[in-house]
C-alpha cells in the first residue's frame, strides 16, 4: 500500500512537470529543455521572497507564483519570441542554452549548498497517516492536490475558454490561426507563462518535501519521458504517461535495483520512440512536421 502511495505522489510530480512541456509543445511546437531549470528557479524564487519580502508561508507562495508568471512571460518576450519562425532545432537549442545559463546563475546567486526551504517559510512538513500503514508527507499531499487542480483548470481552460480555443488552434495550424486574426505572440506568451507557472509550482512543492538543490533540475528531464509517452501534445496523455513512468520507476527501484532510478524513464522513452514515437495519445501526423 505504501508503494501505491509512493506511485501516486511520483505520478503527480511527473504529471505536474510534464504538463509544462505539453503546453509549450502543443501550442508552439517548441520543446522546452530548460523546463527543469525553470522549475527549480521557482523554488529559489520562494527562497528569495521568504528571505526578503514575506515570512508568512501563504503570502510567500502567492508572491512566488506571481514572480514565476513574470519569469515565464519574460522568457518568451525577451528570448523565445526571437526564435519564433526559426527552425525548430534552433529554438530547442536556445532552450538548452537558457537552461545552462539559469543553472549557472542560480548557483552564483544562491550558492551550491542545499537549502531547506521548508524551514525558511516555517512550513511544517509533517508526515500524515492515511491508514495505519500508509504515510505521506504534507508537501506530497499538497503536490497531489495541486496536480489535480492544475490539470482540471488547464483542461477547462483549453476546452471551454476563448483563449484556450485560440491556443489549441495555434497549435493545430499556426498559419491559419494567424490568418483568422489570432495574435500568435500573445498565445505563445500565454503558453510559456502557464508552463512556467505550473513548473514553478512543482518546483516549490518538491523542494518543500526535501531540500532545494540546483541538481534537482534533473527531475525536469526525467518528467520529459512522461510527456512523450502520453504524446507530446496531449494533456491527459501526460497524466497517463506520468503514471506509467512513476509506477515503473517505483516498482523497479523497490524490487530490482535502486541504481535504476535515473535510467528507467529513459528506457521507457527509448521503447516508446521505437514502438510508437507519437506517444499513446499524441497526433500521429505531427511527426512529419518536426
Amino acid at each position: 500500500m505504501q508503494i501505491l502511495a509512493n506511485i501516486v505522489v511520483l505520478t503527480s510530480l511527473y504529471a505536474l512537470v510534464a504538463c509544462g512541456y505539453v503546453l509549450v509543445y502543443k501550442v508552439s511546437r517548441v520543446l522546452n529543455l530548460a523546463h527543469g531549470e525553470l522549475m527549480i528557479l521557482g523554488a529559489y524564487l520562494l527562497v528569495a521572497t521568504s528571505a526578503g519580502i514575506a515570512s508568512d508561508p501563504l503570502a510567500a507562495i502567492a508572491l512566488t507564483a506571481m514572480f514565476s508568471i513574470v519569469v515565464g512571460l519574460s522568457v518568451y518576450l525577451l528570448l523565445m519570441r526571437k526564435m519564433t519562425g526559426q527552425p525548430v532545432l534552433a529554438a530547442v537549442l536556445t532552450t538548452v542554452a537558457l537552461g545552462i545559463l539559469l543553472r549557472g546563475a542560480m548557483v552564483l546567486i544562491w550558492g551550491p549548498q542545499q537549502l531547506n526551504v521548508g524551514a525558511m517559510i516555517s512550513f511544517d512538513n509533517a508526515s500524515i497517516a492515511l491508514t495505519d500503514s500508509v504515510r505521506v508527507s504534507t508537501a506530497a499531499l499538497w503536490l497531489v492536490v495541486c496536480t489535480f487542480l492544475v490539470y482540471l483548470g488547464l483542461l477547462a481552460f483549453l476546452h471551454m475558454s476563448r483563449w484556450g480555443m485560440r491556443m489549441r488552434a495555434s497549435g493545430q495550424n499556426a498559419l491559419l490561426a494567424a490568418q483568422r486574426g489570432i495574435n500568435l505572440h500573445t498565445v505563445y506568451a500565454l503558453a510559456w507563462t502557464l508552463s512556467t507557472f505550473s513548473g514553478s509550482l512543482a518546483g516549490v512543492l518538491v523542494t518543500l518535501d526535501s531540500r532545494i538543490d540546483v541538481n534537482m533540475a534533473v527531475i525536469g528531464l526525467k518528467a520529459f519521458p512522461a510527456a512523450l509517452v502520453g504524446g507530446l501534445d496531449s494533456l491527459p496523455g501526460a497524466l497517463i504517461g506520468a503514471g506509467v513512468i512513476a509506477a515503473l520507476e517505483v516498482l523497479l527501484i523497490h524490487y530490482v535495483n535502486p541504481l535504476l532510478s535515473d535510467v528507467v524513464p529513459f528506457l521507457v522513452l527509448i521503447a516508446i520512440l521505437i514502438v510508437r514515437p507519437w506517444g499513446l495519445y499524441g497526433t500521429k501526423e505531427e511527426l512529419n512536421r518536426v
Binding site: A97, A105, V107
Partner: peptide
C-alpha cells in the same frame, strides 16, 4: 563560483550566437 560562472557564460554565449 568559477564553474557556475562559466556555465552561465556558456548559456549566454550560445544564446547570443543562436539569436
Amino acid at each position: 563560483t568559477v564553474s557556475s560562472a562559466s556555465y552561465a557564460a556558456f548559456g549566454l554565449l550560445m544564446i547570443l550566437f543562436l539569436v
